[in-house]
């Protein structure tokens, strides 16, 4: 494979880990890795991507109050006409990444493969792996049409693998105004702060599902998370039910987490959920239903009533905590 382009998303002046992971994946597959980034020259130091063997970064520039999707997809679309085409384009599965992939797919009339967790070259074709059926089955897929395939890769699927390569060349590119598709305007950005570690990087995640029985009981999950210095998470079922915001969701749709310990309470373990947490180092699951699929991935499974187990566990940890603090 000759060339792979990656989407280099940055936030608050920092290139996202998922972009560095894409570089790590691309380097194993292609002799040349180039990136497309956006943001003003002072905002992000794209040259640092050289450390992951990215040779060149095409910088779209500051997007102002535009959404990322239409502007970046338009720029990549133009570049595909003016540059030698890459063999594949890798995009991280972030909110903006998915927008870019979707717009670009429609623009250049090439389908997308999403939820990619691995990439390999087999018979000169890039073959992607996708976890299905709760991670019990891996499906492999490839593009059969022409044009660079667009792969949307889940975060934490690849190692970054810093090689200490030389600084990447940064090339400014100017793309035409996308027109009506760029009509939306970002008026303000809001950061929701939370106590404790973020779901993405927490060493411990404590997640709740429908088995909690009610929205009110989710506070037990939050309290337990606090006691073990973890982050609270949730299954899609209770996000759909409106108990907790979407930002708490772990799974195919939500976040992928790889904590040291994942504690699941009242989560049966639908495919959608297991895909987001099955790579935790240790898993403890508590659920009433002995046949719940979550028990297949748990290091410790407790078949029991949450209304009994959860308060007792909180009480025990609280007692230890108060004792420790007086020592």
């Amino acid at each position: 494979m000759k060339t792979i382009w990656i989407l280099a998303e940055a936030r608050n002046g920092r290139i996202l880990p998922v972009a560095e992971e894409l570089a790590g994946a691309a380097r194993q597959l292609a002799s040349t890795v180039e990136a497309v980034g956006w943001g003003g020259a002072e905002a992000v130091d794209f040259a640092t991507l050289g450390t992951y063997d990215v040779s060149r970064v095409f910088r779209v520039g500051d997007l102002g109050d535009s959404l990322v999707g239409p502007r970046v997809a338009a720029a990549v679309g133009e570049m595909l006409e003016s540059h030698p085409k890459p063999d594949a384009i890798l995009v991280g599965a972030t909110y903006d990444g998915r927008d870019v992939a979707a717009r670009l797919s429609a623009k250049i009339d090439v389908p997308v493969l999403t939820n990619v967790i691995d990439l390999n070259e087999i018979d000169d074709a890039l073959v992607s792996t996708h976890a299905v059926f709760g991670g019990t089955v891996n499906a492999t897929a490839r593009f059969t049409g022409s044009g660079p395939g667009i792969f949307v890769v889940r975060p934490k699927s690849f190692e970054r693998g810093d090689t200490g390569g030389a600084a990447a060349e940064v090339v400014d590119i100017v793309a035409a105004d996308p027109g009506p598709s760029d009509g939306a305007r970002v008026v303000s950005r809001h950061v929701l702060t939370q106590d404790g570690p973020s779901l993405d990087s927490a060493e411990v995640v404590v997640a709740g599902g429908r088995g909690l029985g009610s929205k009110e009981n989710y506070r037990l999950i939050e309290e337990l998370a606090h006691l073990v210095h973890g982050a609270p998470g949730a299954s899609r079922a209770i996000v759909d039910a409106g108990w907790v915001p979407y930002s708490h969701q772990v799974g195919q749709t939500g976040k992928t987490v790889k904590p040291e310990v994942y504690l699941a309470f009242g989560i049966s373990g639908a495919t959608q959920h297991l895909v987001g947490m099955k790579d935790a180092k240790h898993i403890i699951a508590v659920d009433r239903d002995p046949s719940a699929p979550i028990f297949r991935v748990a290091d410790l499974g407790v078949v029991g009533d949450l209304a009994q187990v959860l308060p007792k566990l909180i009480e025990a940890l609280r007692a230890r905590g108060s004792h420790e603090s007086t020592n």
Binding site: P111, G135, A139, T140, T144, G145, R296, V297, L300, V303
Partner: peptide, 19 residues
Amino acid sequence: RQEVIALEQAELRPSGEII
């Protein structure tokens, strides 16, 4: 334009203790 090539059993975590 795109095809699923194969479906394979994923490597499973060793089964844990259920109590």
